[in-house]
Design a protein around this nucleic acid. Sequence first.
DNA 1: TATATGTTTCACAAAATTGTCACTATATGA
DNA 2: TCATATAGTGACAATTTTGTGAAACATATA
Lengths: 232, 232
Amino acid sequence: MKPYILIAEDEDALATLLEYNFQKEGYEVGVASDGDEVLVMADERTPDLILMDWMMPKLSGVEACRRLRRKSETRNTPIIMLTARGDETDRITGLDYGADDYVIKPFSTPELLARVRAVLRRTQPGLLDDIIRHGDIEIDVKAFRVRRGETEIHLGPTEFRLLDHFMRHPARVFSREQLLDAVWGRDVYVEARTVDVHIGRLRKALKKAGGGDPIRTVRSAGYAFEIKTKGA
Amino acid sequence: MKPYILIAEDEDALATLLEYNFQKEGYEVGVASDGDEVLVMADERTPDLILMDWMMPKLSGVEACRRLRRKSETRNTPIIMLTARGDETDRITGLDYGADDYVIKPFSTPELLARVRAVLRRTQPGLLDDIIRHGDIEIDVKAFRVRRGETEIHLGPTEFRLLDHFMRHPARVFSREQLLDAVWGRDVYVEARTVDVHIGRLRKALKKAGGGDPIRTVRSAGYAFEIKTKGA
DNA sequence: TATATGTTTCACAAAATTGTCACTATATGA
DNA sequence: TCATATAGTGACAATTTTGTGAAACATATA
């Protein structure tokens, strides 16, 4: 539900600082300390954005960048490079290999955050929105509210995150495992069938506010959120 | 704290003129020169009011307007549109997308300033003086007073700052940690649950003056201040 | 120093939420 | 149509989270 940012930085102090600041800003953060690790971690969970140090052990930032561009999951994942001051050659090379933006060290945290937001906005429209609407259903993530038509809907935390996830990826079918990963978290051991129960609870809550069932069951595959929108 | 006005205007000469005049009038001013930049800047610091040119590069004023309305921080930020003379169609479209007022170019500076004051007074009471009001609850920051309806309420310093914070960010859910940061201070070591106790006291004090509980508990997330006002 | 005022922590009760299971309902395909 | 796999759902015990009174502590004031 939160945007997931992968930070690749071998300098511990900086990595920790960045992790702290991004978490505080509401992102989920993964930290990789060399080029190899970035690739592994990006494989485990596709990040919404990668922040990559130019100089790293094992595999340089450029090279990691190039490899990421060769995998279909990360082909379009935005990458922001962190580089030392003033190397124009690097700048050009990096952009060639598919970085989306550059930040020159040293940088201020607000500046970096702004760049990240700008890139996310450009590449993943809707990811940063905190009010999402589909048909007559609207959620406000900052206010933790759900409405359907005129009716306020109360959801438990899990149902809320579930709906949030669905509404950010409408019409797409998710397996129970994918939902557990995205909504519960990747390291929780929970029965897959538990998803069914929460889907049921979410459906009941949405139904109580009137209107059809926006969640489609895809037998032997999973669930998808779909709602016929009439107007904009 | 001066009101912060964000000016979105691609024509340099006009932008500079506006900046100068508003600063002279005691506002803090940010200038964005295209539609994208408005979004970025509004993200960095939520403006108290946005002055937006109708025609801008990259992202038109209307579109920027629409996007701003999708973020909870800027959902209610007043927007004044600057448009070329006489386009009634635009006027209607713009109001649809949530602009609060219109000023037709060319305009006189005093006229614009007056419009801005009017809109600020209407939408952000307490910004120009030090009184904030929501529903029947009113706080006077300078005088350190709280009233609900006709009743004076006495609050301890912490409860006062807590209410102040809530009323400046209505409807938004804050975690206990965020509240500690904002109300207690960045570097205080206090148990998160202490917030609960102060919320409880604040609630009790507000209840004693009659009316419903304006503080909403959001399980596993935090608290939000919300008061049902009937009119817009 | 005594008193008033306000803050923090703690402990326990109350309430909401969760995950699992058992059972039922429904779809699928031979 | 029947057998089988898959999904829906009510119940419930365990867990998590919140509300709150009271004690301990802190600070200012007379």
